[in-house]
Amino acid sequence: MELSQVRYFIALCKTLNFTRAADSCNVTQPAFTRAIQKLEMEFGGALIFRERNLTQLTELGRAVRPHLEAMIEAAEAATALANAKMGRTTSSLKIGLGPGIGAVSIASAVREVTSKLPDVTIHFEEAGPAALIEAMLMDSLDCALLPETTELPERLNRWPLYTDRALAVLPPNHGLIQKNAVNAADVVAEPILMGENCGGFAKQLADATGFSLQLQRCNGAATQLLELVAAGLGMALMSERLRYAAPLTTRPFHEPELNRRIFLTSVAGRPLNLAAASFVKLCRVKDFS
């Protein structure tokens, strides 16, 4: 198929009127109709019902529309990025980060976008999945990293990025520092600090083992919780993809494996600005393992 045929089809989807769609594409109606017919031949079926007073997408037309739109956007973004004058594209890249999901994994993609579009402003927003989904739907966020446990509305595109594993984050001089790895039996009697930004690993551990853990609830930002770990209040189970500075020590957690899959999400069918489109592409291509 040809880019122009697909453009004509999308114009027709929007106007549902051959004359207006052809006009909007600056092409004569016979040429427009021929292009649509060629596309239908390639798809092996009608994309549009043509009746005297009614032009409507067929089921096939409705089914192929979102992918064709995505393809055109990909083509336009790849070309627009190539033509972007350095420093002359002002836009923003607004990324949501779900509970306990750090920016470490996506930092190189952000750097790559800003190296090509230096005037881009970066916004990160840390919040619960429901708030991030709401923000994406309201168009105040371009995309968000969310854990698989989140129920996603149909309107969101989702791409699996990586599997996030838990680490045992230990206070200074903690007994478990002596071990190379930590397991469930090791922590059953240990106070574990748990908050909404810990990624749910402590709950996963309790569910998987049936142990009654010594959980200490602590809501707020992850940084504050880690201050308490550093002060010796207890340990924490958190993502291996966050950075932990001294005096904290981390150990891998095994038996059971505590992990969750992280998805990149964005609203389907809504064109992203150049920076956001490039960021999403880089993340989709990247090997996060």
Binding site: E2, G44, H67, M71, E73, A74, A78, K281, V285
Partner: peptide, 19 residues
């Protein structure tokens, strides 16, 4: 290079729907 969503393939006219 990753031609994500076949955008450049479409612009080059080389993309088709798999039968």
């Amino acid at each position: 290079l990753a031609d994500v969503d076949c955008g450049i393939g479409l612009a080059a006219g080389v993309v088709f729907k798999i039968p």
